[in-house]
Amino acid sequence: MNRYKLVHVTQFSYDGIVTESYNELRLRPRHDESQSCLSFRVTTNPAAKAVGHQDYFGNWVHQFHILPEHRKLRVETEAVVLMHPVAEKPVSAMTLTELDVMRDDLADEHFDWLVASAYCPFVPAILDLAADAERACDGTVHGFVQTASSLIHARFRYQQGATHVHSSVEDCLETQAGVCQDFSHLLLAIVRSRGIPARYVSGYLVPRQGNDERAAMERVIGGLASHAWVQVFIPETGWIGLDPTSGEYVDAQHIRIAYGRDYGDVPPVRGVYKGHAGQSLAVDVHVRPAVDDEGAELLLETSATPPLDPEEEQHAQQQQQQQ
């Protein structure tokens, strides 16, 4: 019922031949008290062995390399995740004023989650939004973050292509539009600038069945079930999830993959290769309830597929040159 199978396919096509390709994946769902990653598998074509380790933020990173010449790279990850029922957390009534007293202790404990980052600079427009949220909220920390999240939902338009993957909040502030990544960065910048620890969460959103407004919107986003939201640390409560794209709390539909200061810490695929070729990218993500005994095993493996056909080199008419 709350067991999901996730298939995430990333395909790179290069304009020419590339070699010595090294890649890192951050696609394995986290395994903790509120969700269990029952199985995870990486398959690449050309075939490579993916080796996993945990990064500074506790995220799983799988790295692999493909040394011979190739023109295409396909990476498929499959995961089965069991979502645990979300227990209602007692919400702390701590006020922002009370929080201010704790500022130094929080900075010591949560330094990484409090400072401005490359994608989340504390520009004046962010400070204005924070001030708006503070005026509009009930003065509690919890109220503030909730208000900030709704504010983003209300004032910014969901629009694919309004920004790009390396956009910082400044682009989004200018266009007043963006996607989940931008809205998460906005919320991070706003709450951090107010001294509240917050982190970026990359993950999947399980599309909801139904016909209400939210389900409709999620289908838009769900076409690309990769999603991003924010977790905020509220003293006496702990971490709570907020989804500024919907303006609501996160629930058992939100499958978490990785935490970071911003997108830069958790790109799903990051890599370098040799070759003078440009690349194009296609991503396809499917999330569905797991069936039968999917996820019964907890393992990591790689399957091999035959290498691509090497193409003939172009005949050189001109004098040869050093490479």
Partner: peptide
């Protein structure tokens, strides 16, 4: 000659690592 040059390159200088 060009092919020889390419082969010297592939054998010794820029060979594919596998």
């Amino acid at each position: 000659c060009r092919t020889i040059g390419a082969h010297i390159s592939q054998t010794y200088l820029y060979y594919a690592v596998s």
